[in-house]
């Protein structure tokens, strides 16, 4: 079975003399899997995710998305990935619909697939008529929703989310969690970072814990019923 994401020996530093922000992380995401990245503030979660997304250059290691190396075939690798950033960056002078159309054009989504996909995602994220408004008028949560909808317009094989639940209301959060499971079950893979242990334990098939840029463990949450307790033990002991 082909891996959707394969990260091997990833190393990244922000300045030549700075310490490694990410030091030799390796992880994989297989079809149907939800993989969580856990770690305290500054552990290297967001840096790892930004390297995978192509936002940050990295010094060593390889990253492959759907078999495409991000350095050798960046455009093909990126075409197979959807991402949601932690800062909800979005072109706020566009309306929600214009932003989604922009992304659909960039990812070359077929004309016939655009409307049905928007309808489906609208049901999950519940943005309603706000999609016709300028994004600058959106609340924090609504910006998070439009980012999520946009990241899925091209139905990517890999969905990468950095702190996805921040700013969402409980109803939407539940709906998003349900959708994440459904989306993974369609044969896609999801990689997301979070501080919420309960949410990670409930949703993830595997959890990678990072400390000071190093990967300290890769837990398979499907193994038995005691894994949540095991996750908490490892997480708190490693901090």
């Amino acid at each position: 079975m082909e891996k959707i994401l394969s990260v091997k020996g990833l190393r990244k530093k922000y300045a030549p003399k700075a310490p490694w922000a990410v030091d030799g992380i390796s992880l994989e995401c297989n079809p149907g899997e939800i993989v969580g990245i856990l770690g305290h503030n500054g552990a290297g979660k967001s840096t790892t995710i930004k390297c995978i997304e192509g936002m940050l250059p990295f010094e060593e290691g390889t990253i492959e998305i759907c078999g495409y190396d991000v350095k050798k075939h960046p455009l093909k690798a990126k075409s197979n990935m959807g991402f949601v950033t932690d800062n909800h960056a979005v072109f706020s002078k566009m309306t929600g619909l214009e932003y989604l159309a922009f992304l659909a054009d960039i990812y070359k989504v077929e004309t016939s697939q655009r409307e049905p996909r928007l309808e489906e995602l609208q049901r999950v994220f519940g943005l309603g008529d706000k999609v016709y408004d300028l994004i600058s008028s959106y609340s924090h949560g609504m910006k998070q929703k439009i980012c999520m909808i946009g990241s899925l317009m091209h139905a990517p094989g890999l969905w990468v989310l950095d702190e996805p639940m921040t700013g969402l209301d409980p109803m939407t959060m539940k709906s998003v969690e349900k959708f994440m499971r459904e989306y993974a079950d369609r044969g896609n893979a999801i990689l997301f970072s979070s501080h919420n242990l309960t949410s990670v334990a409930k949703l993830c098939d595997r959890v990678v814990i990072i400390k000071h840029g190093n990967q300290v463990c890769d837990l398979d949450m499907r193994e038995d019923g005691e894994q949540q307790a095991r996750l908490e033990e490892v997480f708190f002991n490693e901090q």
Partner: peptide, 14 residues
């Protein structure tokens, strides 16, 4: 582009 500069970098455009 503000912080969207990085998002565009992550999109499949050269």
């Amino acid at each position: 582009d503000g912080m969207m500069f990085y998002c565009v970098k992550a999109m499949p455009v050269s």
